[in-house]
Design a protein around this nucleic acid. Structure first.
Lengths: 331, 331
DNA sequence: TTCCGTCATGGAATCGTTTCCATAGCTCCG
DNA sequence: CGGAGCTATGGAAACGATTCCATGACGGAA
């Protein structure tokens, strides 16, 4: 590949001048500008990123660490983050930690070796040694969706309280009193926030405060299925079920169908935190609180770029949208 | 951050020796090995990737260019590719082109600037100038799922013919004669291959060869819905519908429900190329040809690494799995 | 004992940029 | 007409690693 030396030679200037032209320094004459740009175009010159990064001590690369890009939330977030980053001249390197702290640490080492300018982190659990090292090294970091104890970085995530409030309002409008709530793990900040918001808001929305109607799973279908079974085993008869995330709602639906049969199950309304494409096809259709993963990804990148630029960044709770698919609702 | 100079100083050796130890050269004494490794550990030394890349003229970075990471197929593929690459010491940078050739070209420039060692490319359309430049520069490239005219790179993709054969066999087992087929754009190699395989195989599987039953959309729900309506407008009455991808099947279902009503629609069986999570919840459930996106991603990375290593790589068609969700099928 | 070969090491060159520093050529003004 | 100030430029240093080359130490063989 052509180097800047080739460009300079062809343009008949020194490499310093060529560099100034190509990086847009104002200290250049129109004449050398013209000749350098022409030479660069003729040679198809593309600057060597590693060399530039070495000299400038910045890479214009961001690291994105998620648990699993296959989840719709993260794939949407990753798409938005990549678009936003590229619009600002940054590149994104992607890694999955699969909810495994050891893998997360391995990835952080790779990121450190690449000398990323900033980190978009969806925490995989408690703080790890590598993460502490990066924080100590003053790497700009923003957190996505989940917080993490002892890490003082801005958090860009779903407005869990607001989303739960939307669901509660809908349950009230639909006249439900006996509502089963299947939560997620308390160890996830998302699980805890949704749970707390539900407990805090249910009474004001005319919903039974019987704790027999409440149980928690692990944010996965199987755990939620077991939780729903435990609730039904207590002899309560909910008219609606609120799942704290998409997989949870799915698991709860399985348990209800299995225990009560398809017929009776179709008379129970489900509402879910997290909207999932196929909720529209259920009978009855499932209404849902939709996360704005795109908004979170964009806001996260913007916050991170602000930190990189030496500015500040504040946590943001990105509002959810409620998708009402109940009978009476407008299409 | 600590540099190799710091490590060498602390270990009391020259930088050359430190470098040899850290990069595992055999030309080192046990004594200096011990001291350098200890110094590196104490300083938390992590080699500067850009500096190393500059000198070695390789980055250990792969570029992954897809149309949209939000599609389940690509997010699964990206997950697998990232895992496989990391297992071999490579990092993946991600970019979405959104089916837009201009964006794809912009991304290729970024990749070139990053001096990626290899490119995993899901083509966005015909060959572009930047792509030609990269090919001319001898960048190792593999294609994912779609081929592209005039590019002689190994292709890792779904076995479209095999998948269609699985669907045809299922249609035959279920005794369908009047089958509607909604294809995709002929300009996509996937669309063309599935279409061709269907035409070539239908007669042998006892399926009507009436071309009134065939139409094509754009691989998106709306286009497929329109195509399905056109078929129904021709007065034919299919007992089953075969959608050439997930969105296509979804669109066809919408058209059928709208035209025939939910009742009649539930007597039509759907089969789809591409399996989608919620097909299990349809009534009746939708059977599907499942792409092995993970297999494609892994095979693609392995092929690319072989090319990077100076070896060869051959195109592979990754087999599909048929997910039979029809009444009689075993769970 | 001497010589040769092997092996670990130190030091320097190198990769391709950016940026600093010194200088040469201008313009402008007194 | 001469000097001050400004701008564009050439040349070189610097970024942090790898790798080449030369040297010194050591061991074995004659």
């Amino acid at each position: 590949m052509a180097t800047i030396k080739d460009v300079a030679a062809r343009a008949g200037v020194a490499v310093g001048t060529a560099s100034r032209v190509l990086s847009g320094s104002p200290q250049t004459s129109p004449d050398s500008r013209r000749r350098v740009l022409a030479a660069a175009a003729e040679l198809g010159y593309i600057a060597n990123g590693p060399a530039r990064s070495l000299r400038r001590a910045r890479t214009d690369v961001l690291g994105l660490l998620v648990s699993d890009i296959r989840s719709p939330f993260f794939s949407e977030l990753a798409h938005a983050a990549e678009q936003e980053a590229r619009a600002h001249g940054y590149t994104v390197i992607l890694a999955n930690a699969n909810e495994d702290a050891a893998q997360a640490d391995a990835v952080l080492d790779v990121f450190a070796a690449q000398r990323i300018d900033g980190l978009l982190l969806s925490p995989q659990g408690p703080k790890t040694p590598r993460l502490e090292a990066l924080i100590a090294a003053n790497l700009p970091i923003v957190l996505l969706n989940r917080s993490i104890d002892g890490v003082d970085a801005p958090l860009y995530g779903t407005d869990n309280a607001g989303g739960v409030a939307q669901a509660l309002a809908w349950l009230q409008r639909r006249g439900h009193r006996d509502v089963a709530f299947i939560g997620g793990p308390e160890s996830f900040s998302t699980g805890a926030e949704r749970h707390d918001a539900y407990l805090a808001g249910r009474e004001a929305h005319g919903i039974s405060t019987d704790d027999a109607l409440i149980d928690a799973g692990d944010f996965l279908a199987d755990g939620a299925e077991a939780a729903m079974r435990r609730i039904l085993d207590r002899g309560v008869t909910p008219t609606a079920v609120f799942g704290a995330n998409g997989q949870t709602t799915l698991g709860a639906m399985r348990a209800v169908r299995e225990r009560l049969g398809a017929e009776a199950a179709s008379r129970i309304e489900f509402v879910s935190f997290d909207d999932v494409e196929w909720f529209a096809f259920m009978s009855p259709p499932v209404s849902a609180v939709r996360n704005d993963a795109t908004g979170i990804g964009r806001a996260g990148v913007r916050g991170l770029l602000s930190l990189i630029g030496g500015g500040t960044a504040a946590s943001e709770r990105i509002p959810t949208t409620f998708v009402d698919r109940s009978e009476g609702a407008a299409a």
